[in-house]
Design a protein around this nucleic acid. Structure first.
Lengths: 344, 344
DNA sequence: TTGAAAGCGATACCAG
DNA sequence: CTGGTATCGCTTTCAA
């Protein structure tokens, strides 16, 4: 790591103690109850305008900030919507989705928080989340067992929304059926006349839940045809791609679905370095519709994923929180559309 | 958005009420105090082994999960380390950093949480964070004014660590001096014999705090030379790059620092499509040392950023939390090293 | 070695 | 319209 010289700067100000609503009440000359009424705009009770002003001014002057833990304790539940922080680099798609979700839920007065999950797994993770008594949890289905769901439910979570390839019992499930991605890719390659089709399967761990369904989707799409499907393990490194490219002609493939655009770029480079021409010798399609696909030559065909907007999910969460008795729903939310460019 | 058909599934289990430590005590036949002692491994008090077991079994059987809010309220502070969730796509570098940080702080028994910040700014954001009474806050310096710092301090935050281009008063500052990146790039281009140097400045908002220092760094490095520096506004879109490439020959540049590897890829493509050859006509260098740079042809020279590991930062946070009286420190943490490949 | 009880801060009854 | 006050779940003294 980079050197860290130590440079003392200005000294910190005297850390006065944290003002509470009692302090505000004292300064405003009212009771704590009144402070609470005013600051929460409680409508069931009428407070005179001068009193309101005095309270607000006192709060302002003291720099009063309500104590979320106290409120949570009293209320029995927080306004926290918990989701795990992603453990891998996320693309613009996901970032935008999260941003929308947070914005929308924020407007509905929830607090969205991404929980650091490194080192915690299964039921331990569920317990750690439950300690915060979140009102809702959004989580990948495979991170949550039946026990985890029970723990969260019992700890007061009103909405548990899972996403992944299969529904988790007792939760609202958003099904991301990646076989659809593979099916689209497979069908497209078949339609452009290819019959010996390779499918890149990343060797990086953590990607299996995407890569396997994508592979199976291709198999699915080509099951009743004369086409063959070959799985091609590939690590996200130049050497791995070079090795695969070196034995490419021996494989006798005329098309490849490269898992996604990034793996496609890696493999395209290696193949071109080997003198394999795309799309003439081998057609190639990626997935995710990243900018970089448009910057490759030939321009990369890709499978564009359609996911719901963060706003839609926010609405679902709010609906479930407010009607917690509702039976869990399952939503198929992953759409796939081929974007045909020059590489196929 | 994708269609969402509704498919009811199994009904949810009976939502029993949340077990508290009192329930555990009752089941184990001990007092609540004893439960607390056992579950927290309090060392100042000795509990018999059989009692410990009874308590633990009771907790297990009830699925007891402690209530973080109650604990926080009692303790006067949480173990929460708060940082804003990034509002833009982050690369592998940042993801790894966050992962390490969370892991390391988790091992020190802190809970790292990324706070959804969309729609909140300045003092409002600081107040929202303060409500959670975090023990530490990690935040980009420009998101936090003097008032924000005061609010957080007063609400009990023991460590406030800012990162950014300049120190924020009253906080421990991690200085990410991006001028160093520009300086490295500028010096390198000069060293390989280039004199008319362009610097890409992204038009996307939110990137100014990186792009401006990088630009100034180049100016800095070339201040006392015969080289010229030209700022080149560029949006991350193909058309914008095409427009820039179209007037490239008129600009008469023999080198360009492309802000980072992604903008470099965008511009390289556009220039090559215009028939500008790299590095002969124009040398190009990126930054961030992404995988994609190695996949371009020519392979992209780049500025590799050296940032501290998440572990180092975790250690700093822990140290500051435990010795809150300490004067704020300023650390220069950004190292920059040129990786010379084929594009310069 | 264990238990009783105070109290953290905010809220929502119920009296006045 | 406003003020006491009990309450949420947990930790931690102090007594037994």
């Amino acid at each position: 790591m980079v050197q860290i010289p130590k440079t003392p700067a200005s000294s910190s100000p005297a850390p006065r103690s944290v003002p509470t609503s009692a302090d505000v009440a004292r300064l405003a000359g009212v009771s704590r109850a009144t402070v609470s009424y005013v600051l929460n705009n409680t409508s069931t009770v009428r407070i005179s305008e001068p009193t309101r002003r005095r309270v607000r001014e006192a709060a302002e002057e003291l720099g009063y900030v309500p104590h979320a833990a106290a409120r949570t304790l009293r209320a029995g539940h927080s306004r926290l919507v918990l989701m795990p922080a992603p453990a891998f680099p996320v693309g613009p798609l996901y970032t935008r989705f999260i941003g929308e979700l947070q914005g929308a839920l924020g407007r509905l007065d929830y607090t969205v928080v991404q929980f650091g999950t490194v080192g915690l797994h299964g039921d331990d993770a569920a317990r750690a989340w439950a300690e915060l008594r979140p009102v809702a949890v959004l989580v990948a289905g495979h991170e949550l067992g039946t026990r985890g769901v029970a723990v969260l439910r019992r700890s007061g979570a009103r909405a548990i929304v899972t996403f992944g390839t299969e529904a988790v019992d007792g939760t609202h499930a958003l099904l991301l059926d990646h076989t659809a991605v593979g099916r689209s890719a497979g069908r497209h390659l078949y339609d452009v006349g290819r019959r010996r089709i390779g499918v890149v399967v990343p060797e990086e761990s953590g990607l299996e839940s995407f890569s396997q369904p994508r592979l199976h989707g291709v198999r699915d799409a080509l099951a009743d045809t004369d086409a063959t499907v070959t799985a091609l393990p590939l690590a996200y490194e130049e050497e791995s791609a070079a090795r695969l490219a070196a034995r490419w002609r021996g494989l006798g493939l005329d098309a490849v679905f490269a898992y996604n655009d990034e793996y496609a770029m890696l493999l395209m480079r290696a193949l071109q370095d080997e003198g394999v021409s795309i799309p003439e010798d081998t057609a190639m399609i990626g997935a995710d519709d990243l900018m970089l696909g448009r910057l490759l030559r030939p321009r990369l065909s890709t499978v564009h994923l359609e996911v719901p907007s963060g706003r839609d999910l926010a609405e679902l969460v709010d609906r479930v929180v407010r009607a917690p008795g509702r039976a869990p729903e399952q939503h198929e939310i992953l759409g796939a559309a081929v974007i045909h460019r020059d590489s196929t």
